[in-house]
């Protein structure tokens, strides 16, 4: 895969989370002021969909389940969070947010069939 158009830049507003599916890969997009970030759609803690549960303010995202937080620019964990957000490369082109998807980024979860 390669650079793909996700949506018009105007659709990704500050302090909001925009969900997109590109060639079957679900991502979420945010606007961090001087650019955009794209992450997998779920919280790395317990798979909560961040499009419904992520709260964005001052470039910090907080999941409303167990209050894991991240620096939205770097994905680095803050507060009680134990794992970073994974990030897809993004750029702007012709008024579109472009996302580089080589392969789908996924978090490791302890599955319930591990024993």
């Amino acid at each position: 895969m390669s650079w793909k158009a996700a949506c018009p830049t105007g659709d990704v507003k500050q302090d909001k989370i925009k969900e997109c599916t590109i060639d079957g890969v679900e991502i979420i997009l945010v606007n961090v002021g001087d650019g955009f970030r794209a992450y997998p759609p779920v919280c790395p803690h317990m798979e909560q969909y961040l499009e419904g549960s992520g709260i964005c303010a001052n470039n910090v995202m907080t999941c409303d389940r167990h209050l894991w937080q991240w620096d939205m620019k770097t994905g680095e964990p803050l507060g009680p969070a134990e794992k970073p957000l994974l990030i897809y490369d993004t750029k702007e082109e012709d008024g579109q947010v472009m996302v580089f998807i080589d392969e789908e980024l996924e978090y490791d979860f302890d599955d319930d069939d591990d024993d």
Binding site: V42, H45, M46, E47, R65, D112
Partner: peptide
């Protein structure tokens, strides 16, 4: 599968 209003998915 998709979680509950106060719960995470698959739990």
């Amino acid at each position: 599968k998709k979680g509950t209003p106060s719960g995470t998915p698959k739990t």
